[in-house]
Write a protein that binds this DNA or RNA. Structure first.
Length: 220
DNA sequence: GACCAGGCACATC
DNA sequence: GATGTGCATGGT
């Protein structure tokens, strides 16, 4: 890892100054955040909002309510989020776990360690590393750093990480250079997504990117 | 019409 | 272990 190692915190401060607080994760309850974490897999958040609105309007945003639906019924509610059949199955997997282990309550999870949570969540079919970490950070408010395609793309574009760095390496990079702070991890990830949307689109050249200054300065 | 969006599991080599 | 593919709607 190179480039911004020594002033990752300065990079964070610059992003915050430029974009302000992102107020993640948008959601009224921790359970809603969990549901959103699955719905947003490879999907624009705007589409997820429509699906969440459907569930909310039907008063279905609780584990027991979703547990009572068939996979087919749930799929119809979440149709706007795309991949609705597979996501319905994934949501049902998560809800089945919550119902069977904790009778639909999230409270027992709040006492779990991060490694334990990660292990349990990753054992659920349809929940991968990013979704697990998003749930742990944004729904359960525990300090684990979330890595996504934006994180990878933004850092790789500017030579801060090797192109072959994997999820765990990038996650470890952030966690080892930052204090274990839920609010910091929350905001930082959200800000990186913001930079990615504004400056690091897949096929467009980066323009006026905040990271440029940092990567460049350190490498000289 | 092409491209993109806050991934993941599975098949195949 | 790496690489390819299906899943799908909606905005630009």
């Amino acid at each position: 890892m190179r480039g911004i190692d020594n002033n990752l915190t300065e990079f964070y401060e610059a992003l915050l100054a430029r974009y302000g607080h992102q107020h993640w994760w948008p959601g009224e309850t921790d359970f809603e955040v969990m549901v959103g974490a699955i719905l947003t897999q490879n999907t624009n958040w705007k589409n997820v909002e429509k699906a969440i609105a459907n569930l909310k309007t039907a008063d279905l945003l609780t584990p027991p309510a979703l547990d009572a639906l068939t996979e087919k019924q749930l799929a119809e509610y979440i149709r706007p989020a795309g991949y609705f059949n597979i996501k319905s199955r994934r949501l049902k997997n998560l809800i089945r776990w919550l119902m069977e282990e904790f009778e639909g309550s999230l409270d027992p999870l709040r006492d779990y360690s991060i490694p334990r949570l990660r292990e349990e969540l990753l054992a659920i079919n349809g929940i991968g590393r990013e979704t697990a970490d998003s749930i742990i950070l944004y729904a359960l408010h525990k300090p684990t750093f979330v890595v996504d395609t934006y994180t990878y793309r933004v850092l790789a574009r500017h030579g801060c990480i090797d192109a072959e760095s994997d999820y765990e390496q990038i996650k470890e990079f952030f966690e080892s250079h930052l204090s274990e702070d839920v609010e910091l991890f929350n905001e930082f990830h959200a800000l990186i997504v913001q930079v990615g949307k504004n400056h690091c689109r897949p096929r467009a050249q980066c323009a006026n990117c905040p990271l440029e200054t940092f990567a460049h300065t350190i490498e000289e």
